[in-house]
Simulated assay, not measured.
Amino acid sequence: MYIEQVKNSRFNIWLYLPIPVGFIGLMVLNFIGTQGMDVEKMMHNMIEQLGTNVTFVLMVGPLSFACLFLLFWVKFVHGQSIRSLTTSRPKVDWKRIFFSFGLCSTITIVMILLAYLATPENYVYNFKPGPFFTFLFLGMILIPLQTSFEEYLFRGYMMQGIGVVTNSRLIPLLITSILFGLMHAANPEVAKIGPLIMIYYIGTGFFLGILTLMDEGLELSLGFHAANNLVGALLLTADWTAFQTHSILKDVSEPSAGFDIVLPVFIVFPILLYIFARKYKWKNWKQKLTGKLLLVEKID
């Protein structure tokens, strides 16, 4: 019933279109603008001139404010409650958010620890108390807003809007997952590792989209995405990543497209789906992922 919450007379396609069209336009302009540029060198120059934490704020801050703008647009332009953009439940289930956050945090910590123990020569100790705790403060505020914006935009606003227009669940799952992956096409990781890393980004989009449709809400994807970005940024950084931070460790190895893509997309994500499915007793997978929308009598 998550998508169906906006299937009513208040849904106005002309009020809906400016957000996705505008964002996709910005994605295209950003991708075109970075072609032929050494994004990694540009990031290094910014960090040398402004510092790592200031550069982080400039990179993440706009998306954090975009989250607040999107929620304002939904609430006051569409007249839709933030609750209905977040979940089909009577109220937001914070236990789901914290469970997903904790599970993803644990997996991230274990994977980084195992990688460090397996190849310690690929990592250097990067911890500096002052800059680290400054970043911790900034990250705890900005990263959840940044990841929430992406979830509310792709798995919330666009999932519901495309679903209502197409009367489908599969079509919005496909479109939002692919667009989510393409949003990262201008990241320095793509230039460094190659286009195969898009499998990871698009695969992550599908994983988060399946979470949303099967659980009938954003809670699990909100918790997972926030933990993935925040905990990862606190523990590990590299010169070729979009997030260059005052983390505890720094990866100094030469990246390659291989096991780092296969492990999360084809092993970790299916295991997580199994865990969530067992815990929350998911049923009717075919209907929830590929079926038509259901009729609803009353919508908040």
Rank of each mutant, 00 (worst) to 15 (best):
F154G: 02
L138D: 01
V265F: 07
G102A: 11
T241M: 13
F154R: 00
F72T: 08
I193F: 04
S100L: 08
M27Q: 08
V296E: 14
F76Y: 15
E297Y: 07
L196K: 11
L294G: 03
E151S: 13
L213Q: 15
Y280E: 10
N30D: 09
F206N: 14
A227K: 07
F99R: 00
E121A: 13
I193S: 04
F180D: 02
F98D: 00
L136M: 12
S148I: 02
L293A: 08
V39I: 14
L17R: 04
G139M: 06
E150K: 02
A115H: 01
E254F: 10
I275H: 10
A185R: 05
L182G: 06
A186P: 00
L58G: 03
K292R: 13
D260R: 13
G205M: 12
P264W: 08
F135K: 01
F56T: 04
L235F: 10
M59K: 09
G203A: 13
T241P: 01
M43W: 10
V54G: 02
S177G: 13
I261E: 12
T86S: 15
N53R: 10
M46H: 10
L234S: 04
F76H: 15
M42A: 14
P172S: 06
F180H: 07
W240M: 08
G223F: 06
N228Q: 09
V21R: 04
K7G: 06
I299K: 13
I143W: 00
V54M: 12
Y200I: 09
E150T: 04
V74W: 05
Q146D: 03
P18Q: 03
P62Q: 09
H246V: 11
M198Y: 09
F243K: 04
Y200S: 15
K283Q: 14
P62F: 06
S88Q: 01
G25Y: 04
G258V: 13
V110N: 00
L85W: 11
P188F: 05
M43F: 13
L68V: 13
